[in-house]
């Protein structure tokens, strides 16, 4: 009984961290699906979400809700500016160039955040209290429910957007074949910009809702970004349920690893899975090899 209860807590903990990874992973997947770019600066938008909320809350003294809205807007604006200044001017973007540019962008954003704010960690108030909720002996916090809820909303929203709206379909068309898409009259550049806008907004949302749990600092995006990237890879870079399952698998394995084996291996577990998937199933766990379809 004792062990069963422990196991349940590991699963619940893993599930809740996994949902965080999933939400961040979705941001990676959206840009990848629209442009083929893996945006390694995605983690920094997560950081921006948390830090900006804190800034508007503590320095500008706005309420919680206006702070959150402003933080999402400013972070999205940063995403757009990043796209305009760093990605768009490229004449012949090769994947390697893009990877290096996004990594450079992430270092720049982190450095600026450190200079503008500071090097300290900051606490962000929880949305609805911090009294733990009991789930058959395992506990979670109200903030976890927010994370679950927003993740579900994000998947549903994505699904709807990419499959049932003109813009979403146009973005998908760009990812399959941008040349053909432009021939049928899709403004490819605008779609790319749009995908950056969407994913930086999503990154900021993720950053804001996880900040009350993880706290926030200028360098919080590094690890969260990497874990989100793992989640997206496990899920085969799908902007839907695949990445979410990827995140949750990752979270649960980490929690079980830390609890049953040793916490020293926690991060190792995540990255071993990442490497294994890249070697064995580069298309992700849940996706049928798509190359045939294109």
């Amino acid at each position: 009984m004792e062990f069963a209860q422990q196991l349940l807590q590991y699963l619940v903990s893993g599930f809740s961290t996994g949902a965080i990874y999933a939400l961040i992973g979705l941001g990676f997947a959206i840009i990848y699906n629209a442009t083929g770019i893996i945006n390694f600066a995605q983690g920094e938008f997560v950081m921006l979400g948390g830090m900006l909320t804190l800034f508007f809350l503590n320095v500008a003294r706005f309420g919680m809700i206006p702070s959150i809205i402003l933080a999402i807007l400013v972070a999205t604006l940063c995403g757009v500016v990043f796209n305009r200044l760093a990605i768009k001017p490229l004449k012949k973007p090769s994947p390697l160039n893009l990877v290096i540019i996004t990594i450079g962008g992430s270092i720049l954003m982190r450095g600026l955040a450190m200079l503008i704010w500071d090097k300290d960690t900051h606490a962000v108030p929880a949305f609805s209290g911090s009294e733990p909720l009991d789930l058959a002996g395992a506990t979670i916090l109200p903030q976890h429910l927010w994370i679950f809820g927003i993740t579900i909303l994000a998947i549903a929203g994505n699904k709807f957007f990419f499959y049932y709206t003109i813009s979403g379909r146009a973005m998908r068309a760009c990812s399959y074949n941008s040349r053909a898409a432009s021939l049928v009259g899709i403004a490819v550049e605008r779609m790319v910009l749009f995908s950056f806008l969407l994913s930086s907004a999503l990154g900021a949302v993720a950053g804001i809702i996880v900040a009350p749990l993880t706290m926030t600092s200028y360098d919080v995006g590094v690890m969260l970004g990497l874990k989100g990237f793992c989640a997206a890879i496990i899920g085969g870079m799908s902007s839907g349920i695949g990445t979410v399952l990827g995140g949750i698998i990752l979270g649960i394995l980490e929690a079980l690893g830390a609890g049953l084996i040793s916490s020293g291996y926690k991060d190792a577990i995540a990255f071993i899975i990442l490497l294994l998937i890249l070697f064995v199933r580069p298309q992700g766990l849940f996706r049928k090899a798509e190359t045939e379809r294109v």
Binding site: Q6, Y10, T214, V222, A255, A258, S263, G264, D267
Partner: peptide, 20 residues
């Protein structure tokens, strides 16, 4: 005798082990 990483954001696993 357990450890955690300096950047870890969730230590419930280790604490669950301790609780048991």
């Amino acid at each position: 005798d357990d450890t955690y990483g300096p950047k870890d954001t969730d230590m419930t696993s280790q604490l669950t082990k301790v609780r048991g």
